[in-house]
Design a protein around this nucleic acid. Structure first.
Length: 884
RNA sequence: GUGGGUAUAGCUCAGCUGGUCAGAGCGCCACGUUGACAUCGUGGAGGCCAGUGGUUCGAAUCCACUUACCCACACCA
């Protein structure tokens, strides 16, 4: 006998073992030689700050499904894992830790000391998350694991910076940027999150210079008025034509402000006059540039008012606002205050209110880079799945603004720029220059700043393959095939990879972008630390197993949609794993060590009805799975397999073969039943393996005749020799009959253990089918005696009847049957059939349907109608018999 | 403001290119344990697929509008 299984599946017992086995045998690594068709995925690198969260679990499950499937299909597959240094997020964590454990500030330990500690952090926490990814079963090639700040990736970053600078696509300049006073660094536009807030709109009078009267402007941020350097009106605003060129006096500061005209001003908002604060508002900055207005910085980088704010210097922004408002009111400048809803920018990391500030930073000129990136998606060279996300991408790309890439942080790629302390020349170089390229001075000082994390992430698809070196990996595996990621980082990451890939490789980084949704909690809320409603995937794995988690994450959810995390779905997945386990347990109870997985020595004519049926069904399942895999419809794949395993393989097939397995006369028959059964089981396991790698491996390797890891088996193919359409139809008839008998037994309250007698009246083909299926009917419908005839002479009155297709079923249940009730029951069925007939007749009476619908559909409808009519007459006849 | 998503059984959701698609899981009702599985089996009840109109021989499925909820983007002070 083959090895026997425990009664229930215990994932904890097998998962670690198999992962080690796979990794130690390097089954995740592609073959050494660059042969075959490559298939490549780059894992979106998780932050080293983090723990694995449920989103990562989803993301990596999807990638693993794709890569395991392609690997089994024979592709030369590479899945590169790695981690991201996450500049700002990690720095915040390390600063915290430094404060907590050593009571030191960043400045107190200095740049070097700080970086030492950051690297220690990376060692400790970077490894933790990769361990967690292993728990999920991810079959990525750990021998090629990368880190965004490792030597190669860093070289790529420097190369890209220098090249872009040389091409004039990176420039340095004083522009208005987003400044987070708390993180003390700039942020890119997309790192600022706008939140609607209830604010106030303050109307303030600014008196004219040299004449009576005043104008009124509205602002949501009165404290910025201290930095006002102009007033703007729309040139088309007839009300204010004669004001243009005049001057007003800025209250509290006594500064003269010119009134200028600018298209930006919306005449319908507020008073139609805008105070212009070029140093503290992006729009005002632009207006200031256009109208040559002064820039007065009244808010400092620490979030406090500067000396330029006069008596308000040193106050926080909020304190200053209160004092300004009070002072305006006291001096009678304040006209009114209205409630006003507006969007306030917050730092995506620390939630501090972001301050627009003028500052000298490095920027990437986006337009030239965006153009090909737009084209690639528009022309279908790169496809978003689902397609709708391409619009999100395009919308952003087409309105892109220059990208501020310098960050006032220490943890990250330091900007490869050295300023000459003598001639101020800006030296941009791949390595620290010995002397100034301009004046030869050796007194050079490197830019203090580091680059935006996403600058290095943008290079991930090719930096991980060795770029800028022309490595074999790069030549073979680039471009990658699909990028799998959450819809929340389309801008941060996907977009940037696309333009960087196109620019530096001259080729798209990937063909498909599979975008998945977010996982929400059971109430549909976003999971967040503050709500504490996050789900720890490791706990889930402990409780239910990685396979159940994986199955749950992809089932019943179409691409791109958010999904709710519900415990009961996890239970259903675990139960499914257990179902598979027990099906295997059953098979193994009947398998011998010598049994084979290869069934090619069985000829079609040797196969039983049940075997033909299941093989035929399996063909159909393979087709469906393949089709949905290609379309990234993994939810459909898992659903298909779930239904097939549970409702067909277990509920029917295993039950159908039991009589053969348990009989003792003919051992050849037993062996055939066992071998065919394990063949189907093994192939189901293969189809399931990408989704549930652990349990499928555990079972597969126990099957007699199996060789090596299921990971390396060939993906099942559709076999023409297993196409048995006719048997499939016959089997359906048998199933319908069995269901029908079970139904009657139940309604008649026949003891489930009790064997009953059944009479079947059927002609022609159905008659033959029934005769062949006798043993199935006997076992599955609980029959003892049965009689199959083309015509029955004396039908007992005391019997329950049913009509299935062209078969009359008569169950002589004697005393259990109340003839009156039986008539009622049949009348009810008759009504149902009648309504079906009405429907079919209606359809066929519709000329449009008959002439325009596909011929086979019309034919099918006709056949149905005929069948229903037959059933109707049979039932009517039976009712007559009972009545008379 | 622009763009997008979602509305299907009591609950959570599938339903891909319009015609056996009205489905699943959980829940509910009835019955059932000498073995593959109670993490189970058998049988059953439950929905005019948000509303209106249109296209079509035929619509949960396509189009328009309406209603409700959600999200992303956006420089309206």
């Amino acid at each position: 006998m083959a090895e026997q299984l425990d009664k229930t599946y215990d994932p904890a017992k097998v998962e670690k073992k198999w992962y080690q086995y796979w990794e130690e045998n390097e089954l995740f690594s592609p073959p050494e030689d660059k042969e075959g068709k490559p298939f490549t995925i780059m894992m979106p690198p998780p932050n080293i700050t983090g723990e694995l969260h449920i989103g990562h679990a989803m993301d990596n499950t999807l990638q693993d499904i794709i890569i395991r499937w392609r690997r089994m299909q024979g592709y030369n597959t590479l899945w590169v894992p790695g981690t991201d240094h996450a500049s700002i997020a990690t720095e915040v964590k390390v600063v915290d830790k430094l404060r907590r454990e050593e009571n030191l500030s960043k400045d107190e330990v200095g740049r070097e000391g700080f970086l030492d500690r950051a690297w220690q952090w990376k060692e400790e926490y970077g490894n933790r998350i990769t361990e967690q990814i292993r728990n999920l079963g991810a079959s990525c090639d750990w021998t090629r694991e990368r880190f965004t700040m490792d030597e190669g990736c860093s070289e790529a970053v420097t190369e890209v910076f220098v090249k872009l600078y040389e091409e004039g696509l990176i420039y340095q300049g004083d522009y208005i940027v987003n400044w987070c006073p708390d993180c003390a660094t700039t942020l890119s536009d997309i790192e600022v999150e706008h939140e609607e807030a209830e604010g106030k709109l303050y109307y303030i009078n600014y008196p004219f210079k040299n004449e009576e009267g005043s104008i009124t402007v509205a602002t949501t941020r009165p404290e910025t008025m201290l930095g006002d350097t102009g007033i703007a009106v729309n040139p088309d605003d007839e009300r204010y034509q004669d004001l243009i060129g005049k001057k007003v006096i800025l209250p509290l500061m006594n500064r003269e402000l010119p009134i200028v005209e600018d298209d930006f001003v919306d005449s319908d908002f507020g008073t139609g006059m805008v105070k212009v604060t070029p140093a503290h508002d992006p729009n005002d900055f632009d207006m200031g540039e256009r109208n040559d207005l002064e820039q007065v910085q009244v808010i400092g980088f620490d979030g406090k008012m500067t000396e330029a704010a006069g008596e308000y210097a040193g106050l926080t922004r909020e304190e200053c606002r209160q004092k300004v408002v009070a002072d305006l009111e006291a001096a009678d400048y304040l006209v009114k205050i209205e409630d006003h809803q507006h969007a306030v920018g917050h730092c995506y990391r620390c939630d501090e209110i972001v301050e627009p500030m003028i500052s000298k930073q490095w920027f990437v000129d986006m337009e030239p880079l965006a153009e090909p990136a737009i084209k690639a998606v528009k022309e279908g060279d790169i496809n978003f799945v689902p397609e709708r996300f391409s619009r999100v991408y395009l919308n952003w790309m087409e309105n892109i603004k220059d990208w501020c890439i310098s960050r006032q942080l220490w943890w990250g790629h330091r900007i490869p720029v050295w300023y000459c302390q003598d001639c101020q020349h800006v030296n941009v170089a791949r390595k620290r220059p010995d002397k100034c390229q301009e004046c030869g001075s050796e007194d050079l000082k490197q830019d203090e700043d580091v680059l935006d994390t996403w600058f290095s992430s943008a290079l991930w698809p090719f930096s991980t393959l060795g770029w800028p070196e022309e490595t074999e990996d790069l030549n073979f595996y680039y471009p990658t095939d699909v990028l799998v990621t959450g819809r929340d980082i389309i801008f941060f990451w996907v977009a940037r990879m696309i333009f960087m890939g196109l620019h530096f490789k001259g080729e798209k980084p990937f063909s498909d972008v599979y975008v998945h949704g977010l996982i929400r909690d059971a109430q549909g809320r976003k999971m967040s630390k503050s709500l504490g409603n996050g789900v720890d995937p490791l706990e889930v794995i402990d409780d239910y197993g990685a396979d159940a988690l994986r199955f749950m994450l992809i089932t019943g959810n179409p691409p791109g949609n958010d999904m709710r995390f519900r415990e009961e779905r996890l239970e259903a997945s675990r139960n499914f794993a257990n179902k598979i386990w027990n099906a295997a347990r059953f098979m193994l109870m009947h398998l011998e060590e010598e049994d084979q997985l290869d069934i090619s020595n069985y000829q079609p004519e040797d196969l039983t009805m049940a075997e033909k049926w299941i093989l035929n069904r399996f063909n159909e399942i393979v087709a469906k799975v393949n089709e949905n895999m290609e379309k990234y419809l993994f939810g459909e794949v898992s659903k298909t397999l779930y239904d097939f395993v549970w409702s067909e393989f277990c509920d029917w097939y295993l039950e159908l073969i039991k009589p053969r397995l348990y009989q003792e006369e003919n051992n050849d028959d037993v062996r055939q039943a066992a071998e065919l059964g394990q063949y189907v089981l093994a192939n189901i396991l293969k189809l399931l393996h990408p989704v549930m790698p652990f349990i499928t491996e555990e079972i597969y390797q126990k099957l007699p005749g199996s060789q090596g890891s299921i990971m390396l088996q060939e993906w099942p193919e559709i076999k023409e020799t297993f196409a048995f359409a006719e048997t499939a139809e016959s089997m359906e008839l048998v199933q319908d009959i069995i269901r029908s008998i079970r139904n009657i037994r139940n309604e008649m309250k026949v003891d489930p253990g009790k064997k009953i007698t059944a009479l079947f009246e059927a002609e022609g083909k159905s008659n033959e089918v029934l005769k062949k299926a006798e043993v199935y009917l006997r076992e599955l419908a609980g029959l003892e005696k049965l009689k199959i005839a083309s015509s029955l002479a004396d039908k007992p009155d005391k019997a329950a009847t049913a009509v299935v297709q062209d078969v009359d079923i008569i169950l002589p249940l004697e005393e259990m049957v109340d003839i009156a009730e039986e008539i009622t029951r049949l009348e009810k069925e008759k009504e149902e059939i009648k309504s079906e007939i009405k429907r079919a007749e209606g359809k066929l009476a519709n000329e449009g349907f008959v002439t325009q619908a596909p011929a086979d559909l019309v034919e099918a409808e006709r056949e149905k109608l005929e069948e229903f009519n037959q059933q109707l007459s049979r039932i009517s006849a039976r009712i007559q018999e009972l009545k008379s």
